[in-house]
């Protein structure tokens, strides 16, 4: 089953860029990515730019409206994702727990709606 792991954390909770802690944090991300590949669960994964760069788009009465900012202003922001193909939810939870941001924020694991099932 495919799962999307959505990575949320609040501003200022990740180590400062360039600090030794930052290096360790990125190292842990690299290690998690390596495990995902070795376990054969990795499908895709990206980090996102800050929510201040987000644009929200809606179409109303055929007209495109844009709004500066993310869909919802929350303390914890979506900062990245992995798409993982796992045996079951237990494996998906095990993999999500390897994402370093899980230790400072929250990783939401959502099963992909597979059409045709």
């Amino acid at each position: 089953m495919r799962y999307l792991a959505l990575i949320y954390s609040a501003d200022g909770t990740a180590p400062e860029y360039g600090s030794p802690e930052w290096g360790a944090f990125m190292g842990a991300y690299a290690a998690a990515g390596k495990t995902f590949h070795e376990r054969g669960v990795f499908v895709a994964g990206e980090a996102l730019q800050h929510t201040s760069t987000a644009t929200s788009v809606r179409v109303r009465d055929g007209k495109t409206e844009t709004m500066d900012g993310p869909f919802a202003e929350t303390k914890e922001r979506l900062g990245g994702f992995y798409l993982l193909d796992c045996k079951d939810l237990d494996e998906a939870i095990e993999m999500a727990a390897l994402i370093p941001s899980a230790a400072i924020g929250t990783v939401e694991v959502r099963p992909i709606l597979e059409l045709g099932e």
Partner: peptide, 14 residues
């Protein structure tokens, strides 16, 4: 069913 919660006894580590 939808989230793939396994119908299984957890392994040693869990």
């Amino acid at each position: 069913g939808a989230a793939g919660i396994p119908y299984a006894v957890p392994d040693r580590t869990e």
